[in-house]
Write a protein that binds this DNA or RNA. Structure first.
Lengths: 233, 233
DNA sequence: CGGACTCTGTCAAGTTGCCGACACTTTCGC
DNA sequence: GCGAAAGTGTCGGCAACTTGACAGAGTCCG
């Protein structure tokens, strides 16, 4: 990872692209590259926060865990994403665990550097505000899904989200979710059991709404799934 | 509501108390007082946002609603609270419904005025950031409770929150929740049925952890409830 | 290409919570 | 005070999910 590559990664990112060039330059000089092996823990819920992370390659899995080992997958970050900002803004410990899926490369912007950047460029604030608001709105949607929707609809809703975020449209118009996604992992995203996922996916498949392959899901009829969720597609 | 009262309300609020006096003055002049009758709807989810609201007296109930009429109570605001800021920061529609419990008096800071204030006083941003982060952390906790805890523990967790936010310590050390809180309303806060609430509250009472009276709940043993949640009190 | 590992389908038993129903109690407004 | 309205206790049937178990299918890697 050369300094030039770091600079270009930051300059192209959604978060920092409107920084003036000198600030970009400084940020790039003080950012710290970091490598993670497959499955390695980047930080855990409750850790003191060291800084803001940008994902360059690989994938990061954000989750919450109970004392007895169950966990809930909250988000999967793709290259180009930045995360860990909540602890930057409020100074409190990490809200979730973060670990690598596949070997991953990250960029750390140390806490002090990030604060200096904000102090020098308050014009960044509205942008960050919008990002936080987006997270809040997604949390609210999740809370409502859990409260209002029966399990099949929640599964459908999650499949549509995954298709939007990780989908690749095929020649026939169907959307393939480009994730290794065993039923157990889907269960961790919806806090339900593997067996329930299996049953419902099978039901969707039998109606022709989705296609199933080991660890792969193909969305054939998003409108049908959306109708189950009760929202216009 | 005299201009002087408005000014003093704003000056004492957690959100604006460190504004310089001239800005306070301007804000007070442009804020619009508003009266609501018991049960009146202030705004609904999906409405375009008119501004930021401060609650002077009464109480505001924030909820989400389904097409078939079920609803989920997300928050109750007390006098001194400000709300509706999410739509201010991202310009998108309201995330929830807001309606008055009891006759209520509010102050509206119109959208344009709020933006002008922010533009003129970027030092306000870090404070608002922390507030948004607090909401996010509370949302996360809620999501985890729903995912991980069985119903009795979720009820216990909610009772402890209510005791913290609306509790009044009695002579004997017990904490009375100063809300009119029928079991059905508690059910709407936990997205469960009245019958389940009734059964669990009765169980808590029989163990001496809480006291029950029509629409009133008294917390006698918060530690026992916290142990059920699985968190140190 | 063969064995280890992962993933999936499925069943049975048990639990939890929902819903409708109904009686009873308390509170509130006149 | 009295009647209406609101709140509560409780039962029974029912649907949804969980857990544990096990077999079979697919994939990966030596």
């Amino acid at each position: 990872m050369t300094p030039a590559e770091i600079r270009s990664f930051i300059a192209q990112s959604e978060w920092f692209h409107d920084l003036p060039p000198p600030a970009l330059e400084q940020l790039a000089l003080l950012a710290v590259p970091r490598q993670l092996d497959d499955g390695a823990l980047l930080f855990a819920k409750g850790d003191a926060a060291d800084g803001l992370y940008g994902l360059i390659s690989g994938r990061i899995r954000i989750s919450a865990t109970t004392a007895d080992g169950r966990d809930l997958v909250v988000q999967l970050f793709e290259p180009g994403s930045w995360f860990g900002e909540i602890s930057m803004f409020d100074g409190l410990p990490r809200t979730h665990n973060a670990c690598a899926i596949g070997a991953s490369t990250l960029l750390l912007i140390p806490r002090a550097r990030f604060h200096a950047l904000l102090a020098g460029h308050p014009a960044l604030y509205p942008h960050f505000m919008r990002l936080l608001c987006g997270k809040l709105r997604r949390s609210f949607a999740w809370i409502e899904y859990a409260a209002f929707l029966p399990m099949p609809a929640r599964i459908a809703a999650r499949l549509l989200e995954l298709a939007r975020d990780y989908g690749e449209t095929q020649a026939d118009g169907a959307v393939l979710i480009k994730l290794h996604l065993p039923q157990e992992e889907l269960g961790h995203m919806l806090s339900t059991s593997r067996q329930t996922i299996s049953k419902e996916l099978r039901a969707f498949e039998s109606r022709g709404w989705i296609g199933l392959d080991y660890g792969r899901i193909l969305i054939r009829d998003p409108d049908a799934l959306a109708a189950l969720v009760g929202v216009a597609a």
